[in-house]
């Protein structure tokens, strides 16, 4: 556990683990029997861990979704598909590396898989632009989806972005147009689309590959119109209301299930997906498999109509005549 990185609310666990390790060391050096003492501490650790992870606030889940060790799209692609062949470029102006995509087998069937991809270290993050896609990323995604449509392959989109890139290059090649185009084209794509929000689902940047027949979401992922920090800054005019913002915006998976935005919550291993990537991937695979099994029952010619209806139901307003 030594290379595990701890979030602020996990600090009590870290301290306890340190204590246990120190005790073990001393016992070894001085030849003492500390079995009982360690057992007590480990029990306490177990209880503490349970208390923390059973009652995560939305802000804490947000932190877990951004955990530096959290599995990213390629980690899942590795584990839930086989023979992945990455395809590159939007055939317009470039190849964005914050969105990866290509062909792969899922449970023996060829699919098109697309995912937003963050980096694990500085050099990777430069390459991946910290998971902030440029217009080329969305246009590549659309190209791959249209490839899927042409050959009748289902599409799996994995959402994990802190947002579309808000810089000059993005504006000049119209990130807005790229996202907007995807929203329209995904609505009428004549093949099944499963969307899985695996980490961060920030606003239009997430939605730009997020229209589908079924929307799955990992237990500790978040999805909303803006991140809690920016929301705090804009609505409270103050940086310190991010926990309140996370609560008010209802960014967690169980909120979105209750609100009818997502179709299914994918359970994460105890303490977050990074604590057991294999298990997280297994759970995701099961959920994608179940979703696809349901969608393929729908005649292809009805897919688009149902998808439009699905999104048309989203929203709550008052109505008096």
């Amino acid at each position: 556990m030594s290379d595990r990185s701890y979030l602020d609310f996990e600090q009590p666990l870290a301290e306890l683990e340190e204590k246990i390790a120190a005790l073990r060391e001393r016992a070894k050096a001085e030849g003492l029997d500390v079995t009982d003492a360690i057992e007590v501490l480990e029990k306490r650790h177990e209880k503490l861990e349970r208390d923390i992870f059973r009652n995560l606030t939305r802000w804490q889940k947000y932190q877990l979704s951004r955990h530096p060790q959290r599995p990213y799209s390629l980690d899942y692609i590795d584990r839930i598909t086989s023979d992945f062949i990455e395809l590159h470029g939007d055939r317009c102006s470039g190849n964005d590396q914050a969105i990866v995509g290509g062909l792969a087998y899922f449970e023996g069937h060829p699919i098109v898989v697309i995912g937003q991809q963050k980096g694990r270290n500085t050099s990777e993050n430069l390459k991946r632009n910290f998971g902030l896609p440029h217009p080329e990323g969305y246009r590549k995604a659309l190209r791959l989806m249209q490839l899927a449509a042409k050959f009748g392959r289902p599409v799996l989109c994995m959402v994990d972005t802190p947002g579309a890139f808000p810089g000059l290059a993005s504006e000049q090649r119209s990130i807005s147009e790229a996202i907007a185009r995807n929203l329209l084209e995904m609505a009428r794509l004549p093949v099944p689309i499963v969307v899985a929000i695996i980490g961060e689902g920030a606003s239009g940047g997430a939605l730009g590959i997020g229209v589908g027949d079924q929307i799955l979401m990992l237990e500790n992922a978040w999805y909303s119109v803006i991140n809690p920090e920016s929301c705090s800054l804009i609505l409270w005019r103050n940086r310190d209301k991010r926990t309140e913002a996370a609560e008010a915006m209802k960014i967690a998976a169980e909120d979105l299930l209750a609100l009818g935005i997502i179709d299914c919550i994918v359970p994460e291993p105890y303490g977050g997906a990074h604590r057991n990537v294999e298990l997280a991937a297994q759970n995701l695979k099961k959920a994608v498999s179940d979703a696809l099994a349901e969608i393929v029952k729908i005649p292809v010619e009805n897919l688009s109509k149902l998808r439009v209806e699905k999104f048309n139901r989203m929203g709550i307003w008052e109505e008096f005549r």
């Binding site: 907007a180 929203l183 609505a187 606003s203 239009g204 939605l207 997020g210 229209v211 999805y223 909303s224 119109v225 803006i226 929301c231 804009i234 609505l235 008010a248 915006m249 209802k250 960014i251 909120d255 979105l256 609100l259 935005i261 999104f311 989203m314 929203g315 709550i316």
Partner: peptide, 12 residues
């Protein structure tokens, strides 16, 4: 923003 995810979904 006050409608959070619902406002995002209006785009779609």
């Amino acid at each position: 923003m006050q409608e959070s995810i619902f406002s995002l979904m209006q785009m779609a």
